[in-house]
Design a protein around this nucleic acid. Sequence first.
DNA 1: CAGATATCGATACCGAGTGCAACAATAGAC
DNA 2: GTCTATTGTTGCACTCGGTATCGATATCTG
Lengths: 200, 200
Amino acid sequence: MAASRGPGRPRASSAATIHEAALELFLERGYDAVSVDDIARRAGVSRGTVFSYCDSKADALWVGLDAAIERAGDAIAEGSGDALQRLVDALVHAVGPWGATPPTALRDAQAMGAAEALRDGAPARLQPLLDRAALALALERDALPESADAAVAPVTIIAAACAALVAWARTPARPPAAEAVRATIAPIASASRTRDHPAS
Amino acid sequence: MAASRGPGRPRASSAATIHEAALELFLERGYDAVSVDDIARRAGVSRGTVFSYCDSKADALWVGLDAAIERAGDAIAEGSGDALQRLVDALVHAVGPWGATPPTALRDAQAMGAAEALRDGAPARLQPLLDRAALALALERDALPESADAAVAPVTIIAAACAALVAWARTPARPPAAEAVRATIAPIASASRTRDHPAS
DNA sequence: CAGATATCGATACCGAGTGCAACAATAGAC
DNA sequence: GTCTATTGTTGCACTCGGTATCGATATCTG
């Protein structure tokens, strides 16, 4: 990590330290009642340093989620089958490491009063994944990535996966995340496929 | 309207005036380069007045869209068929008045540099509609509105409708919006129905 | 030891959004 | 016509998230 390689390092700050402090405070006081100053104080760091490690106050909520989004984006390039199938497999694969345990921020979103922040931040976080899926689909279908043909199905499937995960995280007794996701989005993908490619 | 009933009414400000000023400025300079002060100046009112008519800077982007969302929410209560079919019909009905002409903010989102603002604001704007759809579905299925069974399908269908509309608004030669929406979400709804109610 | 370098901290700044107290204008009461 | 209550409007102060900058400090290299 670039944070610990440099020549001068007066403290032992890290993104993880700040994220931990933020999540602690979110749980104690609720997301809205925690300011960035609070996070800085709890982490033993100045306000400026918080923003040098985090892009926004909400970053701590997305630690495990961003990683999964990135895994999904990377997996789209690989995989077998048509682009839609690759998207399904990528989403399933991305949440595989979670097993039956959701990332803490997702599981405690309600308790932290961060459900809205999570919901409102999702579009921006998911955009790169969406772009890669739309691009893959557009290449396969000789369409523009912005066309309805290439853009709608990825949005639909990714939205379904997110909704499934939110509900899954609330479930007391959970199956593995990958199972829940596949069961939800596989039929959606089939429907998109048959609508867009009726013959094959 | 409460705005014109009272004894004293020093000015004739209105939400429409402020929305017009905002959209003008967004088109001229781009969404991010326009401050609320700019909008207030252009509309000939003070900053405080802007926020007494608008909840946020982005409000002007949502004038036509919010109305459609509200139409859809109201239509869910009526309609025929199961709850999923009512949601489909409600969405189709909600964009009916648009015909083949998208709301200006949706059509000019790119030109205004407001595509991101629109995307990021969508979850909060769509939440009431989502809640009503999930509630209707939960009642029909004897499930909790937060359960996956009741929550996933509405998210999926509404997301598909939004994606379809965004792509539709970009299309040079447009069919009526209702057609585009129905063609996109009908198969998704069928897939959700057969998955959740395999027997019937 | 000296210089280069990168992080950290403090400060100032910007814009969105909220709250409030004062003001102005008008409709109605008398 | 005057008084009064109501209501939109204004200006200001404030909070908070986010950005930019500059100086200080600690580490590594020569």
